[in-house]
């Protein structure tokens, strides 16, 4: 098991390295970024002080070095102007647009992003498990059709439309808060019980909105898997010898059908994270979504690069957790990994 965990973590580190190269290339794709525009402006002014400042900026952010060195400096594997100082050392870089360190800009948003995604995953599981199981046991009844219908709605409705509708009716009928992740009174306040409760209240609608599409797929797959299991002779045997129906379903068939269910998080998570970024943008949640959009617009590449890295990291960690969970659930997977 330990070997499996180590191997799995090693694979993640490796993937993360490739992803960091990709992200660095992507954020450096646009021909002019915020910093070079600034430098060009300083140069064009022609004043000695400005030119000197431009030179300083060039050196400070290693723009005078080749691309691969810039990348390694960003990651923290190459000595930059200030020694080794990159992502690996916890230095996230500098936001040129806001003139603050990236870590100060993202700050709280990181935790809110993690919380939002975590709650969404929990919501998806908490709803999909009973719904999928019931849909399979009561196949081709109204509850099955209802689950299928909700599934298709979730599949085809763009996230933000669902968000608008839920906000509208949530506010009208249940007095749910509209927009944002906390009341204005709690902005920039230290964390407290009251603030936590407030954030949880604000999380309800976004979590439903982001989770619905993934939940729909989950329900359909769990239903299909469980239906396959329920058709097997051992279930008939169990029922025939008088095992109560609920027990006959829960004891073995559900456990068998659960494996793909856990493995599914790998397919689910990228979509959830994407969805959380989109929904945050539309509903003005204080996660990293809006920060990412504005950073991309102004080509503030340290900021956007770090956020992209973080989002990918979040996905990969989630997948790692699901893999470990799966290996713990099903020993066959631990052993199968050995001869790969």
């Amino acid at each position: 098991m330990i070997l499996f965990v180590l191997r799995r973590i090693w694979a993640m580190v490796w993937t993360l390295a490739v992803v960091s190269v990709l992200v660095f290339v992507i954020v450096n794709l646009p021909p002019g970024d915020f910093l070079s525009n600034q430098i060009a402006q300083l140069r064009a002014s022609g004043e000695a002080a400005s030119v000197a400042r431009a030179e300083f900026l060039m050196r400070e952010f290693a723009l005078d070095r080749p691309m691969w060195q810039q990348y390694l400096i960003w990651v923290g594997l190459w000595p930059g102007p200030g020694g080794f100082s990159g992502l690996l050392q916890g230095d996230l870089g500098w936001s040129f647009e806001l003139n603050r360190p990236v870590s100060a800009v993202v700050g709280e948003a990181l935790w809110l992003t993690v919380a939002l995604n975590l709650f969404t995953v929990l919501f998806v599981y908490a709803v999909a498990l009973p719904l999928g199981a019931i849909a399979a046991v009561r196949a081709n009844t109204w509850i099955d059709y209802l689950a299928t219908f909700v599934g298709y709605i979730g599949l085809a409705t763009p996230n933000f439309l669902l968000a608008l509708i839920l906000y509208h009716y949530g506010a009208h009928w249940f007095g749910l808060p509209v927009g944002g992740l906390m009341s204005n009174a709690y902005l920039d306040q230290p964390m407290s019980i009251a603030k936590l409760g407030d954030i949880l209240g604000h999380l309800i609608v976004p979590v439903i909105v982001i989770g619905t599409a993934g939940m729909a797929g989950m329900v359909r797959r769990l239903r299909a898997n469980l239906l396959d299991e329920l058709g097997k002779p051992y279930v008939t045997t169990a029922l025939a010898k008088g095992v109560p129906p609920a027990r006959a379903v829960l004891r073995y068939p559900l456990r068998m059908a659960l494996n793909p269910f856990v493995a599914d998080i790998g397919n689910l998570l990228p979509g959830l994270v994407s969805g959380s970024v989109l929904v945050s943008l539309v509903m003005g949640l204080q996660t990293i979504g809006p920060i990412l959009l504005s950073a991309l617009r102004s080509q503030d590449y340290f900021l956007s690069g770090f956020i992209l890295m973080f989002v990918c990291f979040l996905t990969l960690v989630g997948m790692l957790v699901s893999d470990l969970l799966l290996a713990w659930l099903d020993p066959r997977i631990r052993y199968a990994g050995r001869d790969r």
Partner: peptide, 14 residues
């Protein structure tokens, strides 16, 4: 394993 939307956003910003 990459979340699509952020990458799409970054690419189209380019």
């Amino acid at each position: 394993s990459l979340p699509e939307l952020p990458i799409w956003l970054a690419l189209s910003a380019a």
